[in-house]
């Protein structure tokens, strides 16, 4: 079966003053249609690089990209610029945190939709455009009359809904979201997440949802990939239930123990001491070695095992996981 999005041993390094510095190392994951994969990481973990690499947005003079990225079986890095232009939006679309501020202030919302559809479907009729626009805005629970507005007339939450509707304008199969709700208030954030979940179900989308917020992602995603220092440490389909903590990768455990909880009895929290490694001098073994409470002597020098599959843990001290239940609380 063809995966909607598959990333195969992806390596990305940036050219910097200190030479070539890795940002992603040996990243492999795949998302089938009709599922949301959450990608969680702290700042500097490489999760935003991941979004840019998957969209082929990294310029050749800023970074080197190795490995394969297949969208519906086609390798994005083998496409001509024109094919790539068509594939973006039609096959894979993206919404990121600042998208809502990237709407052109002098164009109405309708003109954004018209321009996007015209660019990909030259023969589309005006009536069809209007009909589709109204339909898309309705799907993100906006009044279709919003199409006549300009970006500055809408609230942040409404603008981000417009951007999501716009991303879906050409009916892509894969949707990539990089912190799409981070700048928004909790209530608005939650209602947009609800819409993302509904859209994903109705349209059988494959969604890669990138976020720094573990608890937010665990309420939304079917599986969660945890990134640290440019590597995926774990892909899990367990939620962040407190009784399951010890079944996760030591880094994930640390993240889970660090976050205060809203349900259950009040438990103490503890941070992960130390800081992520300097990416220009990543140690040969596990990048989490310095901060890991479960480390073994071998972890310092032995690279993490390369793994594939729906769920896995890359850790010398942990056994491979048995698939748990679905993470999503079905929002």
């Amino acid at each position: 079966m063809t995966e909607a999005l598959s990333v195969d041993s992806l390596h990305v390094s940036y050219f910097t003053q200190n030479g070539l510095v890795p940002a992603l190392r040996n990243v492999s994951l795949s998302i089938s249609s009709n599922e949301i994969l959450g990608l969680v990481g702290e700042s500097g973990s490489g999760k935003s690089t991941m979004a840019q690499a998957v969209m082929r947005l990294l310029k050749p003079d800023t970074a080197t990209v190795d490995g394969r990225i297949l969208v519906e079986g086609q390798d994005l890095y083998q496409l001509t610029p024109e094919q790539l232009r068509l594939a973006r939006w039609r096959d894979i679309a993206m919404v990121f945190q600042s998208s809502m501020n990237a709407l052109n202030p002098v164009l109405s919302i309708q003109e954004h939709f018209t321009d996007t559809m015209r660019a990909h479907l030259p023969d589309i009729s005006e009536a069809e455009i209007l009909k589709r626009t109204a339909d898309l805005l309705g799907q993100v629970r906006l009044d279709p009359a919003v199409a006549r507005n300009y970006a500055h007339e809408l609230s942040g939450g409404m603008r981000q809904r417009v951007v999501i509707a716009l991303a879906l304008a050409l009916d892509p199969h894969v949707l990539l979201m990089d912190e799409p709700t981070t700048a928004l208030d909790v209530v608005v954030q939650r209602s947009i997440l609800d819409e993302i979940a509904a859209l994903q179900r109705n349209r059988k989308l494959a969604v890669l949802f990138i976020s720094h917020d573990f608890s937010l992602v665990s309420g939304l995603a079917n599986r969660i990939a945890v990134m640290y220092a440019g590597e995926i440490m774990e892909i899990t389909d367990r939620g962040m239930a407190i009784e399951d903590v010890s079944k996760h990768h030591p880094y994930t455990q640390g993240l889970m123990r660090a976050a205060p909880r809203l349900i259950g009895s009040k438990v103490s929290i503890e941070g992960i001491p130390g800081e992520p490694p300097d990416m220009s001098q990543v140690p040969p073994g596990c990048p989490f070695y310095d901060r890991c409470p479960l480390r073994l002597p071998m972890c310092r020098t032995t690279p993490l095992p390369v793994k594939t599959g729906r769920v896995y843990i890359r850790c010398h001290a942990m056994p491979d996981p048995v698939s748990g239940k679905a993470v999503a609380h079905d929002v």
């Binding site: 940036y14 910097t16 003053q17 200190n18 510095v21 940002a23 992603l24 990481g41 700042s43 500097g44 973990s45 490489g46 999760k47 935003s48 690089t49 991941m50 945190q97 600042s98 990089d178 912190e179 981070t182 720094h212 440019g230 300097d278 990416m279 220009s280």
Partner: peptide, 12 residues
């Protein structure tokens, strides 16, 4: 940033 640590993956 470059002098400290190249946190290239950091969200903007």
């Amino acid at each position: 940033k470059a002098a400290r640590k190249p946190r290239k993956g950091a969200p903007s």
